[in-house]
Structure formats: structure tokens, C-alpha cells
Amino acid sequence: MTETLRVLIERRAAIINRFKEDLIQRLNLPYEPQDLHEDVSLLGAGLGLDSLDALEIVLCVENCFGIKIPDQNTSILRSINTIVDYVIARQEKRG
């Protein structure tokens, strides 16, 4: 693996793993972290989570990374990957 990829992967994988573990515990999901594909839809299709679960996801991001998700921002909550993108963007903004 090239060094460029290794650095990018390490950062992203750390965020993904932390988030998945907390999400599974909070929502009592019957899956192991490796069962959750990062693109799986969180609300509606895919995992089929509801609006109460969405609140837990928001709390999960806050708890894991100290980052608040704006109210009503459904685009961020669409998949694990869209959440991770938001976390990375906010971390970069913080510096």
C-alpha cells in the first residue's frame, strides 16, 4: 500500500470504528462492526432506523467526537460514510 493511502485510511478507519462500536451499543443493533457497510442507508431503507434512532445517532457523533450535527440536516445522517465525511470536515476546520 502506498504511503498516501495508508495515512488517509488510518484516519478514516479510526473514526469509522469508534462510531460503529458506539452506534451498535446505543441502538442495540444485532451486528458486529464489520457487518455494517459504511454506505448502508441508516434511516428508512437499509438499517431502517427511525426518527428516535436518528436522535441517538446525533448523540453518538457528539459523544464520540465532540461534534454537533445541525438540526434537520438529513443529508449528513444518510450513511456512516456521510457522517464520517462531516466529522473529518469539522475536525479539519478546527485544525
Binding site: 493511502l5 478514516r12 478507519a13 459504511e38 454506505d39 444518510r78 450513511s79
Partner: peptide, 28 residues
């Protein structure tokens, strides 16, 4: 081990054009 979003890969050959792995879904 490389199946992550946000990474650059070369398309078609080692010197092919650079494409990006992305988070899905990409549209709203």
C-alpha cells in the same frame, strides 16, 4: 484493506487517470 471512501486510485492502469473513492449516496 483499501475499501474506504476519500482515496485516490489510478483507473485502468498504474499510470491511468486518478479517480476518487467516495461516500455514498453522493446526491441529495
Amino acid at each position: 484493506d483499501v475499501a474506504y471512501a476519500g482515496l485516490p486510485f489510478h483507473y485502468g492502469s498504474p499510470s491511468g487517470q486518478v479517480v476518487q473513492s467516495i461516500s455514498m449516496p453522493p446526491i441529495m
